[in-house]
């Protein structure tokens, strides 16, 4: 399970939904794994404002990851300042294919964010609710959110 997902998952128990302590779920006895994925700069820009940054930092430190900056990056921090803006048209006047959709070059910040959110995964362990203490087991990266009937 990606840390991205953990930044959105809450305790499934109904009475926990309205209490702030049910988010984020806290990893316990977690075994981490890096699963490489293509960097998707447009996705990062899209998801950035939806992240709960402080909670991401908390989870990161609980997992013993290098400390994240105290404030989230901005969208501008994710792409290298444009260098192609002044590119001249080709001599025969045709536009080359790359020109229509200008390629955005990810910064180191974007790469770091990608690493944390989309490549750092919890492989085994538990996710624990800070409110009710319910433990969701994670096996082979798959968390079990099935609840016994009386907790629904």
């Amino acid at each position: 399970m990606k840390l991205l997902t953990l930044n959105f998952l809450t305790c499934a128990i109904k009475s926990c939904k309205s209490t702030p302590a049910s988010f984020p779920l806290h990893p316990r006895d977690a075994e981490l794994e890096i699963v490489e994925a293509d960097l998707n700069i447009l996705f990062l820009k899209n998801i950035l404002p939806r992240l709960m940054w402080d909670e991401l930092r908390v989870i990161g430190s609980e997992l013993g990851l290098p400390e994240l900056p105290s404030t989230p990056p901005t969208r501008e921090d994710l792409v290298e300042p444009s260098t192609t803006a002044i590119a001249a048209p080709t001599s025969d006047g045709t536009r080359d294919a790359g020109e229509e959709e200008e390629e955005e070059i990810p910064t180191q910040t974007a790469k770091d964010l990608h690493r944390v959110l989309l490549e750092t995964c919890i492989k085994e362990g538990k996710l624990v609710c800070g409110n009710c203490g319910h433990e969701y087991k994670v096996l082979e990266g798959v968390a079990n959110f099935l609840l016994p009937g009386h907790l629904v």
Partner: peptide, 25 residues
């Protein structure tokens, strides 16, 4: 799905029990 190494995250849950994500995810 795991064997096929799909790129999405997976979890086990019953839709009839709700959708355990914070609002606006």
């Amino acid at each position: 799905a795991l064997e096929k190494e799909v790129e999405g995250d997976l979890f086990l849950a019953d839709a009839g029990q709700g959708v355990p994500f914070r609002p606006g995810t």
